[in-house]
């Protein structure tokens, strides 16, 4: 009788130990997961900082209207929206501004619509040419030859008090 009791007790305590162990396993995994999440937080927030950072677009003056001749294309440069204090010269982007009759202005991105290389304006044949893979565009920005899947991207542009202003934009990314 007493023997049975003893055995009973051992089985009980064994069962208890097993329960305890499975509980401890679960709680350790849960705590580990919690610690991992807490540690991942600073890494992810830091990596996303440029994405979560407040961004504006702003209009930048790129010269007076008289600086742009009718029927001509001219390269201008302007400061990007909200640069960092330490950005230095890298905070400047370039664009090609073309003026047509009736004060119609178009600002083309210098980034080739193929893979973003800088296109050059060739004055005499009135073509934009890309050195990387041979993309060519007409003066109105439409694709003329080579691999680009579309024409040049454009920036918003306006005339205020005879001054030409370009609205800063993200680097244009061509999608499928």
């Amino acid at each position: 009788m007493s023997c049975d009791c003893e055995e009973q007790k051992t089985t009980d305590s064994k069962l208890e130990a097993v329960n305890r162990r499975s509980f401890l396993t679960k709680i350790t995994i849960a705590i580990g997961g919690f610690i991992g999440t807490v540690l991942a937080f600073p890494l992810i927030t830091a990596m996303l900082d440029p994405v979560t950072r407040k961004k504006d677009t702003s209009w930048r003056n790129v010269g007076g209207l008289i600086d742009f001749e009718e029927g001509k294309t001219k390269m201008v440069s302007f400061e990007n929206a909200s640069p960092y204090k330490w950005s230095g010269e890298i905070a400047y982007s370039a664009a090609y501004v073309r003026r047509e009759e009736n004060n119609k202005l178009t600002a083309f991105s210098v980034n080739c619509a193929h893979l973003g290389c800088p296109v050059r304006w060739e004055e005499k044949p009135e073509l934009f040419m890309c050195p990387c893979h041979g993309g060519v565009y007409y003066k109105d920005g439409s694709r003329a030859a080579g691999p680009p899947p579309r024409g040049l991207h454009t920036y918003p542009i306006r005339i205020v008090n005879n001054q030409v202003e370009i609205e800063t934009q993200a680097i244009p990314i061509t999608n499928i």
Binding site: V51, Y84, I90, A91, N111, G116, C132, T168, I171, N175
Partner: peptide, 29 residues
């Protein structure tokens, strides 16, 4: 920029990935 442009060809999340890679929507600090 060329790398970011290649990311841009990924459907749906292409732009986000490109700007994530560049650390902002232009080359910058």
């Amino acid at each position: 920029i060329v790398a970011a442009e290649q990311m841009g060809r990924i459907p749906l999340i292409g732009d986000s990935l490109a700007y994530f890679l560049l650390g902002g929507d232009t080359i910058g600090g």
